[in-house]
Design a protein around this nucleic acid. Sequence first.
DNA 1: TCGTCTTACACTTTTGAAAGGA
DNA 2: ATCCTTTCAAAAGTGTAAGACG
Length: 854
Amino acid sequence: MLGVEMCPSLALGPQRRSDCCYRDLVLCGPSLADEAPAHVLAPRLSPDAETAGTPQNRVRMELENAALWKQFSTVGTEMIVTKKGRRMFPQLRVKLSGLNPSLRYILLLDIVPVDSSRYRFQDSSWQVFGGAEARLPDRVFIHPDSPATGEHWQNRTISFHRAKLTNNTLDAQGYIILHSLHRYQPRVHVIEARDVLMCGRAQHSFSFPETQFITVTAYQNSKITELKINSNPFAKGFREYGMNCKKQRDARLKRKITSSQEESLDIESCDPCDSTELLPQSVEIPSSALSMINTALPLTDSGFHTEVPSLPDQTISDQPLMLGQDFLSSEIPSSMESQQQTASENNVNNTLMDGSGQMMGLSGYSSAFPTPQLSSSLSQSSSIYSVVSSTQSSDLELPPSSTIPSPTYSSMPPSDYPGVNTSTTMPSSTTSPPGSSYPISPYLLPSSSYYALLPTDQSQDNLSLHTPTNPPFQSICPSSCQGSGLTIDPGRNQVDDGRLGSSNAMTPAIQNPTQTAFPFPPVQSSNDPDPSSPPCRSLSFPPVLQCNPIPTPSDPNSTPAAFPFPPAAQSTPNSMMTASNPNPTLSLSTSGPAQTPATGSFPVSQSSSIPTVPNPVYPTTGSFPFPSTNVSLQGLVQSVSNALHTSAAYSVPLFPAPKHTAPAPLPNPAHTSYPHLLQSLTLPSSSSIHSIPAIPNTIQIQSVFTQSFPNPSFPHIPAQTANPAQIPSQSFPPIHSSQLLSQFNPASTHPQCPSSSNAYPAVARSEIGSFSQLNSAAPYLPDVVLHPSLLPSLDSSLSSSAPPSLYNPFPSYSLRLCQDPRSSLHLPLRHIYTQPQHAHAQGSYFDLGARAVF
DNA sequence: TCGTCTTACACTTTTGAAAGGA
DNA sequence: ATCCTTTCAAAAGTGTAAGACG
């Protein structure tokens, strides 16, 4: 059977070049597009591309109800989490194109932390308030139709509405477990069924910045409540003239009171007819009101399908959201108009379906948002793409920069998002566009840094923070990786440094975007005039991807390294930042002290941002229309799990940078601690890849971030930075390569066995200790299931390809699929993965965490 | 006292089984 | 006997408010 581990991030292992046939094209979105010129990418990608080849292979995903999501994101999307599980609204509805009609694919939904901060709604805006709680077991929602043919997926709208969110850490239903008051990014992963069985090949991850949300147990922002009521059919009763509206409820309450009084006074006189229920409905609603309903609430009534359009129309056009106004005005402007958007979206979708080369999402999205143009032609496309494809091949596929629509995304976030402000603080030259949450900070972009970044990101993302998972990534680096992956690669380190620097830069930018996403008050200020400038850069990772690094399967040795650590990904969103992030630790350990420092230096936000950075390495298809999403590719993960992982890190910044109301309680231990880890661990450069990139020069990073990304908007970042002192001393227990290896060891790592226990890898503890923020709660370390066969391939791929890893926007969140040698290839996932506990009538949930469901 | 979370409530939509008809 | 449509009840999904908890 197949063991699927869910790493927070889906990390699809790098594909073998030879394997690229189908997957090829995952456009890397952002990364490529942003900065790297198409031509640049092409070469790197070419190998894969050749195999992958056909344009058909370009996998693209479009967020069907993007307009609705945008509306929510402008206000600051909130998602209710309950113990019993709550569905998401808006629901994730996407359209896929570019799949091979005859191949079977599995669609997964996972939700990863955007950063390592906890938020609080104060002063009508979301502000960072402390560090994130320990990461929870990674769970993935498998679309009920999985596995299904490409034709199946492409012929319909794919909805993940059955996925449920819970804050019950002991949830036995298999729902996706999230912490309240944390910011998350949903990601959709498209995996070839055979890949899963065969250790994953073509895997594509998509994330849409506008789908970021903050989890709550009760709505904090009245605007969101209003939007939900107006757009969610189940909440019709709460609409103005609904039977459960305030008037009705008040009336009922009065009746109850009066009835109770009457009863108390004269019980005998009571008449059943007087029941509170009866009165309200019939009496309460005036006929006039009823008549008005049609006109007033047409949209809402329309139902889900109409949702998007309707909402925008009503809410936005008619009643612009206070919070989001700025955002809307600046970014979404006219185009954003609900109707137009919807129309545009539809059109876009159609086009996508048609298979037009253009990216659907982008066009639609971009239109709404003023595009900050990416400096590089490529960037645009990339920016657009939130998706990170694991597949390496994607490169070739990518449409020329020219063809790629200007990055729509960039425009959005930046100006609107509070985060922008931070950007403003940034150095003018490098500064990412103010608003640009998307836009990657220039820093990131720098070509030099760029490569480094990629690796790092990936490594981080892929690797679970805690775990040594990084090693796998290391594998990416040929030399380093080969060994256990633990071996340090000097060369790598250097590269990493550069990467780190870039990555760092990236992160900040990303963060900003995220912040920008939230219209909250803070946001507006930040807007950069130039959308074009910085944001784009960040995206540029392209190169990364480069598929280069595709590891050759041959290396057995490498395999171990290749294994991503247990998905370390910790709960903490920011790989980078986190000190808290387990991932960082990993990377650190591997890379070397230098890296660690870097990590340490990064503000939390950075880390978050990092993830956002699309993985340059794996240019997935860039089909993402969503600009904001810079999905960071988690190609690295791939290597690790072989299977897929995607990292879809996107940069979405929907959330405005939260203001730091209070310093995170937990300092980022990561920063300080990392160094130790790294040192202690003699991880190969590869490891460095993860972290390293991030880590580069702490000093550099710090400077970069601080300067460029001072983001005020990102509260958490500042907080972290501010908190450095807070950062717990981390004494990182040195992680020995052997330990890491052990983790990699398939046997140990196998989900079924150790995994459960592994959910919180021992390593993690050490890491935890190191990460002050997370310390309180030990970061969750996903178990990594390693498959022997997979490891080698990963290593080789990684090493060869080049940039080992990208910074995933979401560090350490890679989806790890582990294949069990014994698994049968032919079984449908739904059967294969049936989890007694997790089995859900409506959908399948996998517990990525070590507890293997499979 | 405050912030957060849980629970119950009333309403709506969705779902699936049963009944009826062609 | 099979298939399709309609009906109905149960289940599930909503936000709200009150209360509990730390």
